[in-house]
Amino acid sequence: MLSRIANSLFWMGRYLERAQHTARFVKVHYYSSLDAPLMLKKEFVLESILSMTGLSIEYKKGHTELVDVDVSKYVAIDESNPFSIKNCISNARENARGAKGLLSSELWEAINKFYHYVNNFSEKDLENQGVANFTENTVEYCSIVNGYIDNTLLHNDTWALIHLGMHIERAGQITRIISSKVKDLAKIEKQKLGVALETYQCITLLKSAEAFDMSRIHYKCVPNFKNTMEFLILNKEFPRSICYNINEINKSLARLGFAKSADKDSLEFFVGKTAAAINYLTIEEIESSIGEFLKETLDQIYFIGTNTEHNYLSY
């Protein structure tokens, strides 16, 4: 496979996943803010959205106030924001277009339809229909596209490259989501807002990863900070936990077989080590310093992302 095409597949996966997580986070927070306990002001939610998407500083450059319409617009469809959902999907589609020869026409049509939906969604539509509608459709389109990726492609190097991009991005996004919620919870604690709010925030967090139902089934109790963290960071069977995704990155790289052997300096070796570490970690070991742990994990994920591209996909 051409290195350039491999790069396109990798980024197609990353952009699709990024759009999906941004959309889901916005959607969940929007709905939860509708009937939030009084102390959770809208501003709090908006801050949280900007912090998760990493756009806080950029947003404040162009806006003086934190207004929900402006934040939605900025995150969802603003073309000047390189990481708006609109731009992510547009990039995903451009990358798919470059690699079209290796995709099934069903997959391509699904991505293309998705692009036209997002691209035609105007400011007016956003005002009339609300951001919830837009983000909900985005999440749904993503699921459709993911379905075509898994069910219409050969599970060969094409598929492995898309998956590699997706899991690197997903690991990163989940880490960011947890991170931003941990910060929110710290704020709550500081302001002594109580246990009810802690539960509330945990539920929002789990929903942001479509993890609420499964964590209930798993723990059979009301979410608390500890079991929520354990579920999203360390669960080996839940497809949106950090651990699960690092294992998938490891598998995708092994499948692609870029590195000839277990070379100690290879990226594969590093990923294997990272995976081994998180597979045998317990929540008790990190419970007290979750923030630190997440920061380190995010750095490792970024390292993997940058080096995958640099070592194997440059042209």
Binding site: M1, L2, S3, R4, A6, D157, L256, F258, Y312, L313, Y315
Partner: peptide, 17 residues
């Protein structure tokens, strides 16, 4: 064009392997 190069009068494409 950027995927191809010529070496000793043969043409090659740059692949991941």
């Amino acid at each position: 064009g950027r995927d191809l190069f010529v070496d000793k009068n043969f043409v090659y494409m740059k692949t991941i392997y």
